[in-house]
Design a protein around this nucleic acid. Sequence first.
DNA 1: GCTGGCACTCTGGCCGTCAGAGTGCCAGTC
DNA 2: GACTGGCACTCTGACGGCCAGAGTGCCAGC
Lengths: 355, 355
Amino acid sequence: MLRQIASKPVEYVEAQMLEERRLAVLQAIVSDYVATHEAVGSKALVDRHQLGVSPATIRNDMAALEEEGYITAPHTSAGRIPTDLGYRMFVDQISQVKPLSAAERKGIDRFLSDAVDLDDIMTLTVRLLAQLTKQVAVVQYPSLSRSQVRRIELIPLNEHRLMIMLIVDSGRVEQRIVECSVPIDEVLLADLRARLSVAISDQPFSSVPQRIEDLEQSFNTENRPLVRAVIVEILETVTAKLDERVVLGGASNLARYNEDFPMTIQPVLEALEEQVVLLRLLGEVGTETKLSVRIGHENQVEGLNSTSIVTSHYAKESTPVASLGVIGPTNMDYVNSMSTVQAVAQYVSRFLSDE
Amino acid sequence: MLRQIASKPVEYVEAQMLEERRLAVLQAIVSDYVATHEAVGSKALVDRHQLGVSPATIRNDMAALEEEGYITAPHTSAGRIPTDLGYRMFVDQISQVKPLSAAERKGIDRFLSDAVDLDDIMTLTVRLLAQLTKQVAVVQYPSLSRSQVRRIELIPLNEHRLMIMLIVDSGRVEQRIVECSVPIDEVLLADLRARLSVAISDQPFSSVPQRIEDLEQSFNTENRPLVRAVIVEILETVTAKLDERVVLGGASNLARYNEDFPMTIQPVLEALEEQVVLLRLLGEVGTETKLSVRIGHENQVEGLNSTSIVTSHYAKESTPVASLGVIGPTNMDYVNSMSTVQAVAQYVSRFLSDE
DNA sequence: GCTGGCACTCTGGCCGTCAGAGTGCCAGTC
DNA sequence: GACTGGCACTCTGACGGCCAGAGTGCCAGC
């Protein structure tokens, strides 16, 4: 695709061809290494790929690539393995993501169609991803900040306790229990619910705080303690629980890589246990790009800097609501991971929007 | 404690003393092995424990113990390690579980007192357990089958959808969405809710099916499709979701043991990812015993037969509602695990009952 | 029944060796 | 100037022999 038209000066064309072959060599190294997990040598390269030149030539290219930092040799006389920079180059070169086969699409469809509620979708999705990529999968629940409140309920549980229930358009339900010292008056409660409902129904989550902050003033002084307690809890819910939930799956796939590589799984497992870390991982990427790949040290999270993360947003009715993705060793199969993550994200989006 | 009164025949007393020492030897082997994870030899044993006899004597005892199947030698000239049977004997011998220190109790208290709702309690508990025992922890949500329905709500979401919400006395909330082809009539819905409420409020979960099965008959034919749809969903909820949720924590602790022992973590991780397996694990033990220990092959679950599981029930207002526990290698520190699991179970019980 | 002594055995670490793989460089060719 | 074949060099990993250390089993004596 980089090949230029013939009118350009000859040297320039040749320089480009050289560049082109180097790129091909790098790609060949990455794909071989990803497949075998063994350092790849010049001879093996010409054997397996149609490069049209001799091993010696490839060696020169490899020396150049090493000079530029794309590949490295574990020791004097082993083959080369890609560096993070090499993977980066490789990934950037994948201009369009390979679409999945019909059978794979069918499989995803069948798998997800069993879902009955949001929890189900999340659980099934994370399994699906882990299974297809043979890696650790992460799925974030639809963010509340980009959702709307669909309905609010205040349900008395007994004399001194009530439950606040926020139903969100993404299907999430947030509940919270309020204790109050004075006995709960049902009439007051119904009134409060009605007013809250008017204030925040069908409103985006992020606007909730300003919409209810003055509500307390419109009640009698004697009723204010209850009203205030309820409002405080709602505010806490909308602020604290904004993007909180993440599901993880396929952790056993980590063990598979254990044998292969200089990546001890303990720190990775530890990192994955921290919701906060996972959220940072999924959140780090801006909302603009759909498919994101972070490779090795590109990743800021302690303990995960010898892993790569492939993520994508998914959407509900065309607005992105959260992310999902997979985490694996830097020598993972990027082509497959990227196409799978993308496809699954699309399916989940469609599923959420249809429903 | 087994020492008998002096009037017994001398030989009998001596035989008993022999038995007693063998037991001591076994206990010494188990505790040394658990501490060091290295096969323990006769000399090391007399050095570290006050057994009052020479290594040669211990060797005889060890030969006998091996004969009886309590210990085994990995090879001719290594020390001995306990068999599953040996651990079993050791565990059975721990008549009363060592109580935790004041500092530990304080720590648990502080840790759990942050919890605001049931999800919080479960999450914090599983972390606490994992942290204290340095093992994989499992906590089961309070079972619905032993709980009561506190309240039912039917919340219309839009013209064709409504949400059923079952609030349970343990703090759990089960929700379910119903689609219906005919537009939802609010009056009918209120009526249905009222009747359902009468039928099942404050009733044990297990009695729900028989209490609502005839309800459909008391409605007009035209309204029956909606009524039936709701009833079907409720029935599904009470039957399918009975004990469904389990939280897992501390999986990274598995990696620690990896170095030590012939226990590859892949199958264990796999098993732990299956909710079903975990539930079976926690459910296997009857409701009568509080603290249960299953060692190695005693465990039926495929892939977990070189691990041990220490579990305990926890209760709400003195009726057991679910289980929690830890999973580790058979050479885990049983004394610590048992006391920690027991203590945490007690704390959780108290917490649930207070609230 | 306990003990010290002794011969036996097995493991794990260390070392030297060696084949295999892969490189870097050089001189020659198109 | 780019490509190629050839060659010397180097590093790893597997293999086998060797040895010290640890622990056992057995036996004769107390």
